[in-house]
Design a protein around this nucleic acid. Structure first.
Length: 428
RNA sequence: GGAGAGGUGGCUGAGUGGUCGAAAGCGCCGGUUUGCUAAACCGGUGUACGGGAAACUGUACCGCAGGUUCGAAUCCUGUCCUCUCCGCCA
């Protein structure tokens, strides 16, 4: 959410930014509504001031007759105030409705445009894309040989898009988590496991819409709780309504959670195997910073993601996401796309991580402030998030890149200790 | 799940319809005194939004949302959270 004052004062820039991001929102109307609201607020405050003044004088009235006469007058003032307040609230609600649709501003260096061609590849990982001298299998085929997944049972118990991990895949899943946690711990992150459910309020605060036909979020009937789509939601909510001392910033959190996504409207998209599923586990990074620290923090989060995948020996490319694909809260976003040899006909890049600087967009909704001792007042903190390891996608990358001609899969060196073996071999 | 108690400023804690944005203490900041430190004393000390060059000033906020009233921290309803006891359980 952008500040209304900012939108009013920078209407032209905000409009251009909406256009760059492919979002349609009526900035002109918002400006108009806000100006009307301001005028009405002055009126409300003036009436309220009078009414307060009057109410105080009643307490000092000398007798019952004077008191009753004054009460009548006080009631009129209060009624007038209530009427003005109602008009103000209506304007406020209308303005807010538009305001919530306005996306964050965009980093000046981020590419402008939309679609894959607009995104810019800024870097490659250390590992070369491997040349196979045999036909590379995809993770589903590998999973059959190694007995790693049970999709039928997932569908039976829960539905399409759910699955059981089995045998070595469970070990690999845990090893990847343990590996990521280890890296983040060394980078000074506070480790957490987070609730898998959150209040709607927190969802909204982080920029997710729990309702509507296109929502990605599952809701729990009979409560205002939702299953989280990512630990970003709970980690952001962790400091909701808090004012954080500047000396404590930046705060770097690592959160492990399950992630639930309805994937509404995703029918027909690459759905084979565990690439796009309704539930997966993720180790997430989250940071709260002072406003002047967030640009550098985004680079840091991106570099950690690179380290994690370099450490796994998986080839990837880094994408500087173009304005049209940033969504609502992100000011700038980098994605890591890992090479997945089993995708498409001869392998394809597939998104495995994403890191965003949301500046104060989420903090304003969640009311998270920073306070410096030498500074009057407070400023909204900046929030950033990034994927350390998203299981499912990371599992695919490991399985497909480390497969051998005989159907076995080597375990990346970095995981061997956590996994307790060097190779996953077919049951025969 | 059942019964009860409670949520007030950075903290402790008073306040049961009017002059309460809120006593007092602690903490913190500034000052005086003082070989130094401590103590003592004096003054200051919430946040947001609006007006003003500034001094300053208006409005709102006593978990949150409603309601009663001319007037609510105080009364009523709902809700969230915390604590205690019982039950159940990993």
């Amino acid at each position: 959410m952008l500040e209304r004052k900012f939108i009013v004062e920078n209407a032209a820039a905000v409009k251009q930014n909406c256009a760059n991001r492919g979002m349609s929102c009526d900035v002109d109307r918002l400006v108009q509504l806000e100006e009307q609201r301001r005028a009405k607020l002055l009126e409300v405050e003036e009436l309220n001031r009078k009414a307060n003044e009057f109410a105080k004088s009643i307490g000092k009235a000398k007798d019952e007759a004077e008191r009753n006469a004054k009460k009548e007058e006080g009631r009129k003032l209060r009624d007038a105030k209530d009427a003005a307040q109602a008009e103000h609230d209506k304007l406020d609600a209308e303005a807010r409705e538009v305001q919530l649709l306005v996306p964050n501003m965009t980093h000046p260096a981020a590419p402008v445009g939309s679609g894959d061609h607009a995104n810019v590849e800024v870097r490659r990982g250390k590992s070369e894309v491997r040349k196979f001298d045999f036909k590379a299998l995809d993770h589903v085929e590998l999973g059959e040989k190694l007995d790693l997944f049970d999709f039928e049972a997932g569908a039976r118990t829960t539905g399409h898009g759910f699955y059981f991990l089995k045998n070595d895949c469970v070990l690999l899943d845990l090893a990847l988590q343990r590996y990521a946690v280890d890296v983040l711990s060394r980078h000074g992150f506070t480790l957490t496991t987070t609730p898998d459910l959150a209040r709607q309020e927190v969802l909204m605060g982080t920029g997710y819409n729990p309702r509507g036909p296109e929502t990605q979020i599952y809701s729990i009937a009979g409560s205002d709780l939702c299953l989280v789509g990512t630990a970003e939601i709970t980690l952001g909510g962790m400091y909701a309504e808090q004012t954080i001392d500047a000396e404590k910033l930046p705060i770097k959190l690592a959160g492990i959670s399950h992630c639930f996504r309805t994937e509404a409207g995703a029918a027909g998209k690459a759905t084979r195997g565990i690439y796009r599923v309704h539930q997966f586990t993720k180790v997430e990074m989250f940071a709260f910073t002072l406003p002047e620290q967030s640009d550098a923090m985004l680079e840091q989060l991106r570099d950690i993601e690179c380290d994690i995948f370099d450490g796994l020996g998986i080839p990837y490319r880094v994408i500087d996401t173009a304005s049209g694909d940033l969504g609502g809260p992100a000011y700038r976003k980098y994605d890591l796309e890992a090479w997945m040899p089993g995708r498409g006909t001869g392998g394809e890049w597939g998104e495995v991580t994403s890191t965003s600087n949301c500046t104060d967009y989420q903090a304003r909704r969640l009311n998270i402030r920073s306070k410096r001792k030498d500074e009057k007042g407070t400023r909204f903190a900046h929030t950033l998030n990034g994927t350390a390891i998203a299981l499912s996608r990371a599992l695919i990358a490991v399985l497909e890149n480390y497969q051998q001609a005989d159907g076995s899969v080597e375990v990346p060196r970095a995981l061997q200790g956590w996994m307790g073996k060097e190779k996953m071999t077919p049951k025969v």
